[in-house]
Design a binder for these strands. Structure first.
Lengths: 215, 215
DNA sequence: CCCGAAGCTGAGCGGGCGCTTAGTCTCCCC
DNA sequence: GGGGAGACTAAGCGCCCGCTCAGCTTCGGG
């Protein structure tokens, strides 16, 4: 429940772009509360309390409770998109880049589960305009994954029946990690990321390191 | 938005076990409302209104709003478990049974998306005792999938590095369908089920109907 | 033909919600 | 060292929530 929990995974300390300090504390408190109980079950009094402030303090830094969710959602989606782009746009084969994208995306969903839960599952709580903005970011995430898959198919590396379904399946695997991680087993985010990258390579017909014919 | 929408897919009309009629209408209304807005954002007035009754009528058939969610969750999980068991316990190879389990489970999540959304994503809104009961049902679902995978590994049909991770991945694929279906593309539940079964067979190293070496 | 049980409604209670406002405290600049 | 801007709080407003209850209607059995 401490703030340090989220640092696991070795990634950069997040939310540094949120200033001033009080606004960041409120936002981090909101992420924790939304992830635990959901947006609608979280009260502004709870958020302020977690941040060590009075309920009214929230409204100095944010116009509404929804603006908090909007800010969290946008920053989170931008981070997710950055993770995917870093992997898909580097040097290497399509298989390497897809495996990198999946393992780092899964690592993020597992290691920063509270943020990922809010980002992936509380979208419907936003109003129409805010939701439209976030949905656009999400489509860019989808496009990154679909792009690598299409490149692998074009180069002959991958053997895929249906790019649309395969893209959705890959994203489903990664996103769903935020739902179950830390509930079931004792794997680390790195371990889950590696396993899932392996499974995805199998899905696209790019073999894996198991003892089977390897292209 | 009509009640008939949910009948698509050719499965038996659900909720017939809920009697009397007024109790069923309220429960169906609650499923729709919970799926659209989430449990906490749904009011008892909204549920009663959708069922064409006054707010007070709800409390003749259900003690609390939470009991409605509990009932929906239990019936839904029992249906999910039945679907998985029907597939995994029939005659046939492990590959056939796993493919059948995935395609029928996906078909349910897609065709009965409103129910599946409530069942899969509103679990945290239940109190501790009710949640414990539902979690037990969910573990039985997991065990069915893990069982077929283990059988396929034991018989040499499957080539799996990590049964635990693969089981979770298969379930993630199916469950996440309830999140995105009907938002993105124009596929039918049957089509998505078939595609996903194919992808799962690839994940377990049981090949698929693509032009590659077939064991 | 009356009666009690069952199903349902209109009105409303207590409470907690998101959010506001008036006022206090703390600085920093001059 | 006086003053004003910004950060924050205590108190509370108005609203709507989950839920209750007294009373009305309907209907099958004696």
């Amino acid at each position: 429940m401490s703030a340090a929990e989220e640092t696991a995974g070795g990634e950069a300390e997040p939310w540094v772009e949120v200033t001033p300090d009080a606004a960041r504390r409120l936002l981090v408190a909101a992420v924790e509360a939304f992830a635990e109980r959901g947006y609608h079950a979280t009260t502004t009094r709870d958020i302020a309390g977690r941040a060590g402030m009075s309920p009214a303090a929230l409204y100095i830094h944010y116009k509404t409770k929804e603006e908090l969710l909007h800010r969290i959602s946008r920053i989170g989606h931008e981070k997710a998109l950055e993770i995917l782009r870093t992997a898909t746009r580097r040097e290497g084969s399509a298989a390497d880049r897809l495996a990198d994208a999946v393992s780092s995306f899964v690592r993020w969903h597992a290691g920063r589960r509270t943020t990922a839960r809010v980002v992936q599952y509380e979208l419907d709580a936003l109003g129409p305009e805010a939701r439209a903005e976030i949905v656009a970011l999400r489509r860019q995430c989808d496009a990154e994954v679909r792009g690598v898959i299409e490149e692998g198919v074009a180069s002959g590396e991958f053997d895929v029946l249906d790019v649309w379904a395969t893209t959705l399946a890959v994203l489903s695997l990664c996103i769903d990690v935020a739902r179950w991680f830390n509930i079931e087993g004792p794997r680390t985010p790195d371990e889950v990321g590696a396993r899932y990258a392996d499974l995805v390579l199998r899905m696209v017909g790019a073999g894996a390191r198991s003892p089977r014919a390897q292209r």
